[in-house]
Design a protein around this nucleic acid. Sequence first.
DNA 1: AAAACAGTAATAGTGTCTGTTACGCATTCT
DNA 2: AGAATGCGTAACAGACACTATTACTGTTTT
Lengths: 140, 140
Amino acid sequence: MVNCRFTVAIHVLCLLAAQHPRTLTSEFIAGSVNTNPVVIRRILGVLRKAGLVRSQPGVSGGWGLVAKPESITLGALYQIVRPGTVFAMHSQQPNVLCPVGRNIQRGLRLHFQKAQAAMEAELDRITIADVLEDVLETST
Amino acid sequence: MVNCRFTVAIHVLCLLAAQHPRTLTSEFIAGSVNTNPVVIRRILGVLRKAGLVRSQPGVSGGWGLVAKPESITLGALYQIVRPGTVFAMHSQQPNVLCPVGRNIQRGLRLHFQKAQAAMEAELDRITIADVLEDVLETST
DNA sequence: AAAACAGTAATAGTGTCTGTTACGCATTCT
DNA sequence: AGAATGCGTAACAGACACTATTACTGTTTT
């Protein structure tokens, strides 16, 4: 089972959107996600740097949504919580004495970028508001 | 360093296509990829099950291409060497007592599938023949 | 018969991610 | 002012996936 930060980030933003403008503590959120509060704080820390949420320490503190749910696309969120590429190049540099080995990475880079861009474009068609609507709809 | 089997598989098929109809040994291929022959045999074993290549043991044995390079798309290859999904759900099951936690996975599944399908559709537009052409072109 | 080469199991090492504890700091409430 | 609450973050352990490597068996050609 690989990286699930993206999924958790969506989950948390849906929670914050559903309860807006109330603030939620990392402990409460962790109870819904079923993980440790530190994990939640780590992910929300990244989202705060991106300007999506804000945090407040102290009594009656917690986390609140800053951006509008319908303005947060899954594509943007993906780039925030999982920077980097879907595809990995060779773990060791290929043999430069081989015509294929010497040029294969350059030849693949653009194709990989376009494939990932297509994926993110599809994710851009969905917002947190859409997901929340789906979730609460199936809830009834 | 994540999964690079997909990249290596493309690399190996380009080699086999470039040298076709000659056969190449796993040791020779490993020399271009810069890894161990066993790693090559493992990946080629998967491709053989899919009918893309064949192998022959013994003296002057090795690996040969069966499918035509222009008929092997990167999308098909991706599904062969990396079955499974790009996106991971929660590592622990979310809290079913929470309306969001109870339905978030069902709400996300379709979106994730569509995003990955968009990526694979983009990969389907490229064949091994295309990649080989790019690679040999930049070689000059 | 000997050599070459695939097939495969077993193992070690590395890296990434999640989960957890611990502690400091900021803020609110009494 | 002091206590309680909650974030911020470092440190560490455990799980897991992947790569690399060794070693051995079986098959085919020469």
